[in-house]
């Protein structure tokens, strides 16, 4: 089920931990892909999920119905099924992007991964933002309208700034879920951290536990760091005297 490209694995005889160490560069390269996948997917999720949340709260009957239905399907289907779907049903060609002499190749699997993880995340993020928008007191909207602001300006300048602050805990949770779920792109053979770990331990079967513990430690550091970083963001934008953001 995984990709077929053979990893450049160091195969010298050594202790199992030494084997992990020798191949740490290979695993760190996978970690970079894990991070890239996470960032791209969370961003896609935000740019689709935030408007979707706004539509769910302020949209008309038809647009709301559409967004809600798509959301139910995406939230009700396992991520692995979504990823396989993206990979086989909407096959994206490999892309090579060149900007200022730096070229980056994006494999079809990477794009499928970002689309799958990103759209699924959008479905969850829309729920986070919907809840946050609805939690802003109706009086805020009325007060904004009472000084003559139109509905869009009221949403933008009064409701959204408050809602975004309240979204931080949910968003934090969502980022770590996406981060952990990047491991599921194993199903479409994208060589991120867990896939690379797998490729390593099928070569050196005595080191399975060592490799997996090493990879798990990297994941743990990533989720832990993400959480602390977002805690800082939350504290930075908290409203003085008010609820913590």
């Amino acid at each position: 089920m995984t990709g077929v490209e053979l990893p450049p694995i160091a195969l010298q005889q050594a202790s199992d931990w030494a084997f992990v160490w020798e191949n740490s560069g290979y695993l760190f390269a996978g970690t970079a892909l894990t991070i890239a996948l996470t960032v791209a997917s969370v961003l896609l999720g935000f740019f689709v999920g935030f408007p979707a949340g706004v539509v769910e709260v302020y949209g008309g009957r038809a647009s709301r119905g559409l967004v809600e239905t798509v959301g139910v399907v995406l939230r009700g289907t396992p991520i692995v099924v979504i990823l396989i779907f993206m990979y086989f049903v909407f096959p994206t060609p490999d892309l090579t992007i060149g900007v200022l002499g730096v070229t980056a190749s994006l494999s079809g699997a990477f794009l499928a991964g970002v689309l799958g993880l990103g759209l699924r995340s959008a479905a969850y993020q829309s729920q986070i933002f919907r809840g946050a928008l609805q939690s802003v007191d109706e009086g805020q909207m009325e007060a904004a309208r009472s000084i003559g602001m139109d509905k869009l300006a009221s949403i933008r300048h009064v409701v959204v700034p408050q809602a975004l602050r309240r979204s931080v805990p949910g968003f934090q949770n969502e980022v770590t879920i996406v981060l952990k779920d990047t491991s599921v792109v194993f199903a479409i053979g994208l060589a991120e951290l867990l896939t690379r770990s797998y490729d390593l331990f099928v070569v050196r079967t005595t080191a399975v536990l060592e490799i997996l513990l090493f990879a798990s430690a990297i994941y743990f550091v990533l989720t832990f760091t993400t959480n602390r970083a977002l805690d800082l963001v939350s504290a930075r934008y908290a409203i003085p005297g008010g609820e913590s953001a």
Binding site: L194, L212, L213, S216, Y219, F220, T223
Partner: peptide
Amino acid sequence: RGTPLLAQLFVIYYG
């Protein structure tokens, strides 16, 4: 909660 479920399954099954 800080590590992927799939990695945990691998640890138990393969590791």
